[in-house]
Each structure stands twice: as C-alpha cells, then as structure tokens.
Nucleic acid binder design. Structure first.
Length: 574
RNA sequence: UGCCGAAUAGUGUAACGGUAGCACGAGUGACUCUGACUCACUUUGUCUAGGUUCGAAUCCUAGUUCGGCAACCA
C-alpha cells in the first residue's frame, strides 16, 4: 500500500464526488437522516397475471436496490392477487424465478395480499362502522353514470345514506355468498363532486364467485386494488411504496384509506416513470396478445422483452441491472433507445464470454497446397484480453468453411476480406490467398481455391508482411453442424404503441425478427455446449445455447446481440 | 372546458441560485490476429415569454407542448 499513492491530489477517494441520487433515493436518504425511519422497507408488488418484463426489472432494481443500499433495509416480494379471474399460479412461479434470476433475494419476506383478506375485511367493517363506507346496489352501468365526467361532478348513490347497521348486515351477507356477482359492491363514502374521479365514492369490494388460486372458494368477495394496496403496505410496515406514474391520481385515495382506519404504520407512495423501449411493447395486455395469437412462441420467446425471453436469448442479470442503472429514475415519460440495452449487454458479455469460431453461412474453401490427410491442431486463446480464460485447440485441414459475407468477387478497395487474388489471415491459423473461384451451373460461387503460406503458422508472417483482414473459419471435416437463430427487433417502428392511421402495434410486427440458419458450422468443441452457455462467435456476435431446444451433443444457438460492426455501417452509408 | 404530473444535445440522464456535465448514438482518428474491445478528439441541449437577482436550467407569473385519470383491472 505504502508507495502507491503517487498522486494524492487526484486519487484521494475522500474527495471523490458522491454519485448523485435519483429523486426517490434522495427522499429515502432524507427520511433516514432526519429519523423519520430507522431503516427502509420497500416492496415489489406484481399482480400474478403475466410474466415479468424489462420494465419490471426497473422497479425490481429500484426496490431491492434501495434495500441493499441502506443498512437494515429489506424488500418484500408481494403478490397483489386480488383478482382471481385473471391470476394464476403459473405466473407466481415465473415471477419468483425471474426475480431470483435477476439477482435479488426476498429472504423470508414473500407475501400475498390474499393473506390479508381477513384483516382487510376488518378494515372495511371499521369504515362501515364509522359511516365511511356503504353497500351500493347500483348496477355497473348506473355507477358509471353516477360518477359524472372529469368536468361534471357525479351524483350520490341512492344507497349512500344507509345506516352503518344496515350496511354491516348487507356486507356480511355479501361475504356469505347470498348475492349474485355484480349485484352489490362496497363503496367508500367520500365525495361525488371531487375533481379527482378516484375519490367519487370508489368501489372497495366486489362480489366474484370465482375460486382464487390461493384461497380457493373461501371468499366470494374480493377487495379492489386501491383498498388493498395501501393497507397491505401498512400491514407490512412498508416505508416507501414506489409505483409508476399512472397511480399518481390514486395517491389521494391511498392516503384517504390510511387516514380513515386504525393503523400504526404509515407508508408513503412515490411515483416514477415506467420504462418504454423503442421497437418493442411493454404492456402486459399487448404481450399477452402476442403470446395468445401465436405471434411469438411463448412468454419466453427470445424476441420478447420479458425477463424469461431475455434470459433465453442470452441476456445476463448483470447486464440488465447495469441497464437499469443507466436509465435512471425520473417522473418524465421517456422512450429509451433499445441501443442502450444492447450496449449494456455487449459491455457485460465482452468481459466474461469465451470466444469461439463459428461460420453462420458457410462457403467452402480448399487449401490446394495443404496435405489432404493432414490435421493441424492450432492454439486459440479463449479471450483476447484475459489470459486466465485459457485456450483451446482447433483443427486445421485442407478443406475449411468461411463466411460467405467474407468473400466478394469484385470487392471495393475498402473491403478487407477475401477476393480473387487477395490475401487474408485465417484467425489463429495461416495467411491464405484466393486463386480460383468455383461456380455451379447457375453461376453461383460454390467454392474457393486458395493457397496458404506455411511460414505464417499462428497468424504472423516472418517477413513482416501485413494483411488487411482476419476472418474466421472452421475445418470442414471437423465442423459441427448446428441450427443458429438470429433475432432482430420485434417491431419495425420505434414506437409501435403509436397507433396512427388506424394501425395497431400488430401491423408493425417485423416479419424478419427471426431468421433460422440450419447450416451453420461450428468449431468442434461447441457441440458440447450446455444449455444456457454463452459464447462470442468471433466477428459475429454473442450467442447462447437455447435452453429449450438444445439436445445433448446438439445445441441450438440463439444470437443474443451482434457485435458492433463498423464495416456494415460504412456499407450502409454507401 | 376538470384534476394530477412532466418538459435539459438524436436518446437516456446530472447539475439542488454561481463555469450546463456524463453515458449511449453519430462522426473522425489511433490501436488491433475479431472492421470487436480499448483510447483520443468532434458534433449537437436548458419548451416559450416576462419577472426576481450581481447572477436563473434551478425561484415567481403567464403561456405552449406532452403524458396520465371517468374497470365491480392492477
């Protein structure tokens, strides 16, 4: 340690600028500093009616992140399961898996709003007793009519002034199952003239004779979100209840409920902007439609922005976490460029992923001056910057495959690859020169005849001669044939949610979002890739062995993301 | 025409009355056995109009634009 401090003026960590906090963490820090709370309790509260997506990752990283950053902080996983008609155990299982996979641990703190049904019922009884809730027999349509409009106040329900005794008896009978679905609701008694629609005597309970995935047929009466959420937060001792912007107008109701029942712990709701990403959709409803209509293969289709889809595609938890850090936390409804996500995953994968040679669209090359029966084992490092990643050996023979894109018959001068008479380096192998182009009857190039320079073994010329390009290759006899799936963005437009000219997001689906290559040739070791294992196919991109369709000894690869490609960019510009 | 909220480079964000920074993208160059990575440089911004102030992205006023809100969904 002693003599390493050669520039204390700049390297003193004590003078380092603290990272700026987002507005939520600032509030949290204040509450801690002024003793309002001894520590933090946050919660991630999904409804188990769909799979988690990248937008949820933002919320998970926020809530669990705050717990990690503050001494004694904890974060609950709470399922907001108050609508049995839409919810399913399949979703609670997938949500638990996804949160864990993302790298977070709720420990013992896993809860279900349905566990609070009895307590919630008691709170409702308290509201009735104090004259702040009533049983209403208006129909759904009538309630809507009585609600008024944003500019016109609502009108009182004729059932609004029933006595607490009558309401209590009715509410009990609702619980006992005496009434049919939709015939009665419990409503808060607030103000039908409130400028906030949510305060116009909102529905607190409705009758649903539907079995619940956890409570079975124990209840036929289910509490609404606005009643459930704030009280669940209070019951659990949540200090900061963080949700997205659309709940901002619900906050007065959140506070009203807490103000009007007897509680001992008071959570505070703070809203932030949900994530929107270019070239995709992030609404459960739309994602569900994609799944149900078979536009994708399922919730975990690698083109889906779901966590299970991203996982199958090869995204890493750390890459997604880094992305969430990058996008920040504000109250501004923004549309984040998916390039930010792609950068995060490339950056993560670059450091950690072993390199391999894989030819996606093979073109045969015969090295005419190489011995027909000979096999040379060449050493190839697994990572260009990290020697500790070790190396493996790849076989080199007279017949190899190279990428079709790495050959042009009439290349421009900027093309640093194979062309008639041109010399290139085969990565980790030899310099070769293209002498002859073989065509089939249709005139298509089927094969190249090249010669190699034996002096360049390993990739360097003793005479100091340079080549412009290095291309990847694989020995024809040893190559492992595999299916490789190339994924592109699911939609063709930046904002598919923008439904102009009568079009919907479904009209913007990218017909080329999936390209299946059945003829890829991989270096032999790749045959043993384990499902979920990730590699960089050099000069091409990051790939992950599919966890669903791979067979032992026969992996199928998904492209996670391409490498940045300056050449492709240059070409596009013309 | 109601209520709530938000506006900072192309995109996402920071600056908390005192020099408008950062990341991504884009561009140029260096390096290179991946046209990758890395590095250097460049480009582009405070919604508008007033006001307060020595000084405003920040405070005030008015406007503009955008988002959300009228499920017995969450």
């Amino acid at each position: 340690m002693g003599n390493t401090n050669y520039n204390s003026a700049e390297s003193d960590p004590g003078e380092a600028k603290p990272e700026s906090l987002d507005f939520i963490r600032e509030i949290v820090a204040d509450d801690l500093a002024n003793g309002r709370h001894a520590s933090t309790v946050t919660r991630f509260p999904p409804e188990p009616n769909g799979y988690l997506h990248i937008g949820h990752a933002k919320s998970i990283c926020l809530n669990f992140g705050i717990a990690q950053e503050n001494k004694g902080g904890i974060c609950h996983l709470r399922f907001d399961d108050t609508n049995p008609a839409k919810e399913d155990i399949e979703y609670v299982d997938s949500i638990k898996e996804d949160v864990q996979w993302l790298g977070f641990d709720w420990g013992k703190n896993i809860f279900f709003a349905s566990d609070y049904f009895e307590k919630l019922y008691a709170f409702a009884v308290e509201l009735i007793e104090t004259g702040k809730a009533f049983v209403c027999e208006l129909t759904l349509e009538e309630i809507a009519e009585h609600r008024g409009t944003p500019t016109r106040p609502g009108t009182n329900s004729p059932f609004r002034d029933r006595s607490p005794e009558e309401n209590l008896a009715l509410f009990q009978r609702m619980r006992d199952g005496e009434f049919a679905d939709g015939t009665r609701v419990l409503r808060a008694r607030i103000d039908m003239a409130s400028p906030n629609l949510h305060m116009r005597d909102p529905v607190l309970y409705r009758i649903r004779k539907v079995p619940h995935h956890r409570t079975g047929s124990q209840w036929c009466l289910y509490p609404m979100y606005d009643f459930t959420h704030c009280l669940s937060d209070s019951i659990e001792g949540i200090t900061h209840s963080l949700c997205t912007l659309e709940f901002e107008v619900h906050r007065p109701l959140y506070d009203w409920v807490l103000d009007n029942v007897t509680i001992d712990r008071r959570p505070r709701q703070i809203e932030f902007a949900r994530l929107s990403l270019t070239y995709t959709v992030l609404s459960k409803r739309r994602l569900l439609t994609l799944v149900e209509e078979g536009r994708v293969s399922g919730w975990d289709d690698p083109r889906m922005p779901t966590l299970s889809g991203l996982r199958r595609r090869g995204y890493t938890p750390s890459g997604i976490r880094a992305f969430c850090k990058t996008i920040g936390m504000t109250k501004f409804n923004s549309l984040t460029d998916v390039a930010l996500l792609e950068h995060s995953i490339r950056h993560d994968l670059n450091d950690t992923t072993p390199r391999r040679l894989a030819v996606l669209r093979p073109l045969k090359v015969v090295i005419t001056n190489f011995d027909a029966g000979a096999v040379e084992e060449l050493e190839a490092p697994n990572h260009p910057k990290n020697p500790e990643a070790g190396s493996r050996t790849v076989p080199f023979t007279r017949e190899i495959y190279v990428e079709r894109d790495d050959f042009m018959e009439d290349p421009p001068s900027k093309f640093h690859r194979l062309g008639p008479g041109r010399e290139v380096r085969l990565r980790f192998a030899y310099f070769i020169t293209c002498n002859e182009v073989i065509r089939n009857a249709a005139g298509e190039v089927t094969e190249l005849h090249c010669t190699y320079d034996p002096e360049t073994r390993g990739g360097n010329a003793p005479d100091g001669r340079k080549v412009k390009g290095t291309i990847h290759w694989v020995s024809a006899a040893h190559a492992h044939e595999a299916e490789v799936r190339l994924y592109d963005r699911l939609f063709t437009v930046e904002d598919p949610n923008r439904e102009e000219d009568g079009k919907t997001y479904l009209d913007y689906l990218n017909p080329n979002s999936l390209e299946v290559l059945r003829d890829a040739r991989l270096e032999p070791g790749l045959a043993n890739a384990a499902p979920g294992e990730r590699f960089q196919f050099e000069r091409s991109g990051y790939f992950c062995a599919d966890t669903v369709d791979s067979q032992p000894g026969k992996p199928v690869f998904n492209r996670t993301v391409t490498l940045r490609d300056a050449w492709a960019k240059k070409q596009k510009k013309g």
